[in-house]
Amino acid sequence: MRHAKKAATNPFQTDHQAQHKAECTRTGWTANITHAATHVAACGAMLALGALILPHLSISPLPAAVALLWIGVTHGFIDRRWPVARWMKFARQEGWAQHGGAAHVDQTGHILAVVAAGLFIAAIG
């Protein structure tokens, strides 16, 4: 199924990934996974930088790895687009979805996943 052309929405995503990451094709899955992996690498770099400039904080490798895996999996899942569409239907937000609301729900989901990962690291790591 062809979708309207989508442009990248952040510095860690190509236009190709934005256009194809929700497709159930090899191209779609590759775009989705490479985008999520790039996001995990960026989050890992920021986590390492935080540990470097804040040496008094103790971050154990296993909880950090679990948190980064969580970020990657949830990012890829949210970016399949159908979870956002289902949420908006469940929340009776179809009108907002038709007027660009899905992008806001998508970003909120990503932020919540990263916050959950941070809280996990703070509690465990």
Rank of each mutant, 00 (worst) to 15 (best):
M1V: 12
R2G: 00
H3V: 04
H3L: 12
A4W: 12
K5Y: 13
K6H: 11
A8D: 00
N10K: 02
P11F: 02
Q13E: 15
T14A: 02
T14E: 09
T14G: 04
H16G: 06
A18W: 02
A18C: 04
A18K: 02
Q19S: 14
K21C: 15
K21L: 12
A22F: 03
A22N: 11
A22M: 13
E23W: 00
C24K: 14
T25D: 07
R26W: 15
R26L: 15
G28D: 10
G28I: 00
T30G: 11
A31K: 06
I33L: 14
I33C: 02
I33S: 07
T34K: 06
T34Q: 09
T34M: 09
T34S: 13
H35L: 00
A37G: 12
A41K: 05
A41F: 10
A41E: 02
C43L: 11
C43Q: 08
G44W: 03
A45P: 00
A45C: 11
A45K: 03
A45S: 13
A45L: 14
M46V: 14
M46Q: 02
M46Y: 09
A48D: 01
L49M: 08
L49C: 12
L52F: 11
L54W: 09
L54S: 11
L57M: 14
S58T: 14
S58F: 08
S58N: 12
S58E: 10
I59D: 00
I59Q: 00
S60D: 03
S60E: 06
P61M: 01
P61V: 00
L62P: 04
L62E: 08
P63V: 01
V66F: 09
A67T: 09
A67V: 01
A67R: 05
A67E: 06
L69N: 06
L69H: 00
W70K: 03
W70I: 07
W70Y: 13
W70Q: 07
G72M: 03
G72C: 05
V73K: 10
T74E: 11
T74C: 15
H75G: 04
H75D: 10
H75C: 03
G76V: 03
F77S: 10
F77K: 01
D79C: 08
R81W: 11
R81A: 09
W82H: 14
P83E: 09
P83K: 10
P83S: 11
V84W: 05
V84H: 01
R86Y: 15
W87Q: 06
M88D: 05
M88Y: 03
M88N: 04
K89A: 15
R92W: 08
Q93T: 00
Q93C: 11
E94M: 05
G95A: 12
A97K: 12
A97M: 11
Q98I: 07
H99E: 13
G100S: 08
G100Y: 07
G100H: 04
G101K: 05
A102Y: 10
A103N: 12
A103P: 02
V105N: 04
V105C: 01
D106F: 09
D106V: 05
D106R: 08
T108F: 15
H110E: 06
I111D: 09
L112I: 13
A113K: 00
V115Q: 09
A117Q: 00
G118A: 07
G118R: 04
L119P: 00
L119Y: 09
L119A: 14
F120A: 03
A122E: 02
A122L: 09
A122V: 01
I124R: 07
G125F: 01
G125M: 06
G125T: 03
